[in-house]
């Protein structure tokens, strides 16, 4: 875990379930991180009618926390010009590890929700979102 300090906290979760290839070996440091599908759910439409506002709910099943707390929530959109869509530190006033918001998507892609628990474990949940174009173009 120590070596991970120089990498973004959510990075291991992005490639966690990809098969490493000779062209793209999995970084040993990433392999060391504990990534699980776990108790995180990303609720996002699989068919989005516009990329300018896609509703998202990220929530953690409290039953799976086993005494741990959720330290951070993140949303990674790898095909966005800025792939780190959202990163939040959660505080003690929260009664539920749950976030509702809306994000921008620049293209059809697998959007990845990430939660980091107090013991360093990463949970991830990815959903493929198909972005349909606008029916009428608007130049106003």
């Amino acid at each position: 875990m120590k070596a991970l300090a120089v990498l973004p906290w959510w990075l291991p979760a992005v490639d966690a379930f990809a098969q490493p290839t000779p062209q793209k070996p999995l970084d040993e440091r990433l392999r060391a991180a504990k990534v699980e599908r776990g108790g995180l759910s990303l609720d996002i439409p699989t068919l989005a009618e516009t990329g300018t506002s896609v509703p998202v709910v990220l929530f953690v099943d409290p039953a799976k926390l086993a005494g741990r707390t959720v330290a951070r929530l993140g949303i990674i959109a790898p095909q966005n010009p800025r792939p780190v869509a959202l990163e939040l530190e959660l505080g003690s006033v929260l009664a539920q590890p749950r976030l509702t918001t809306a994000i921008r998507l620049g293209a059809t892609q697998a959007v990845i929700g990430v939660a980091q628990l107090s013991d360093g474990t990463l949970w991830q949940h990815a959903i493929e979102v198909l972005l349909t174009g606008s029916a009428c173009f608007d130049g106003t």
Partner: peptide
């Protein structure tokens, strides 16, 4: 009926001024 993934409306203006996500503002 749908054009791509969007339903065609009856073209009424009763919601305006409206917040359009395509504009990302009120218009």
């Amino acid at each position: 009926k749908r054009v791509r993934n969007q339903a065609i409306s009856q073209g009424h203006g009763v919601g305006y001024p409206a917040y359009r996500v395509e504009w990302q503002t009120l218009g």
